[in-house]
């Protein structure tokens, strides 16, 4: 009897959570497609595809999304490559824990402040206020994040596999190419995805460094929301959250199938 109640309670909680998680997407969809939704009607009087046609017509939203995607792609490639190399060097360092703790530090300081100081640096080095500046600033944060993710990759097992390969005649480059990259592919793919998201979703750094000149998708959504244009803000938000969500659900299978995870289980 007690068991039956507990399992029913678990089911109610699980479904309640599922609804709570899906609800925001529904809210955005309503916001984007509703037409003439007067207070206090529970449902809109009609539906409009205007937001969608605005998107398809290559409007400002799509333009911003393209810019965001290019920046995010560059940020993820740059930060993950750098993080791969440095996290391996950290994993074999003497004071590895103390050094790895440093990767957390940038997350303790507001991006507004980090952005402000990097902007000063970029200004003085002549790289101010462009997409490049935004890219560089986001890369610093993404890099620290990728190092945090990669710390889990460098298990004693993976390092020992490098040693085993060296014993079989592999150079450092060959160890990377033949062992570490393929064996860590799942974690690396995850890091690429997460650093891409970090840049794709970033508002603060793009605002402080871009200074309004680099209109990324979050900036565009923010502007629309500030101007009270809920329809464009909602459509832009859908464009912002749906692609990573779909990609994530697909990638989850890939990560679960990662050979390294299988062996360590």
């Amino acid at each position: 009897m007690i068991r039956a109640t507990a399992s029913r309670r678990a089911a109610v909680i699980a479904w309640g959570l599922a609804v709570l998680i899906v609800l925001p997407y529904a809210v955005l969809a309503f916001g984007a497609f509703a037409q003439q939704w007067r207070y206090p009607a529970l449902l809109p009087a009609g539906w409009s595809m205007r937001a969608w046609t605005a998107l398809a017509g290559g409007g400002a939203l799509l333009d911003a999304a393209g810019r965001s995607a290019v920046i995010a792609l560059a940020v993820s490639l740059l930060s993950v490559t750098a993080a791969l190399i440095t996290s391996q060097a950290l994993a074999i360092a003497r004071h590895r824990e103390r050094m790895q703790a440093l990767a957390l530090l940038p997350f303790f300081v507001s991006p507004v402040v980090i952005g402000m100081s990097l902007q000063q640096l970029l200004l003085r080095s002549g790289l101010d206020h462009g997409a490049l500046g935004v890219l560089l600033a986001q890369s610093f944060i993404a890099y620290a994040y990728a190092v945090l993710l990669m710390n889990a990759l460098w298990s004693p097992t993976l390092l020992a596999m490098g040693d085993a390969a060296a014993g079989l005649g592999a150079s450092k480059l060959a160890i990377w190419r033949e062992v570490w990259l393929p064996a860590g592919a799942g974690v690396i793919a995850m890091a690429l995805f997460q650093t891409f998201s970090l840049s794709w979703f970033d508002y603060a750094l793009a605002r402080v460094i871009g200074g309004g000149r680099v209109v990324t998708l979050p900036i565009r959504v923010f502007e629309a929301l500030s101007a009270g244009d809920l329809r464009v803000a909602s459509a832009g938000s859908l464009l912002l959250v749906l692609p990573p969500a779909v990609a994530f659900l697909l990638a989850r299978r890939l990560v679960a199938a990662s050979p390294l995870l299988k062996v360590s289980q």
């Binding site: 097992t157 020992a160 596999m161 040693d163 085993a164 390969a165 060296a166 014993g167 079989l168 005649g169 592999a170 150079s171 060959a174 033949e178 062992v179 393929p182 064996a183 592919a185 050979p259 390294l260 299988k262 062996v263």
Partner: peptide, 30 residues
């Protein structure tokens, strides 16, 4: 890699992304 010495530990560290044949051929492919 230039010593001609192979170390085998307590745990047989096979490369998880390669099958048995791939593991056996590893050094030869290099």
């Amino acid at each position: 890699r230039e010593r001609g010495i192979v170390y085998l530990g307590q745990e047989p560290l096979l490369f998880p992304h390669l099958d048995v044949g791939g593991n056996l051929a590893f050094g030869l492919r290099l």
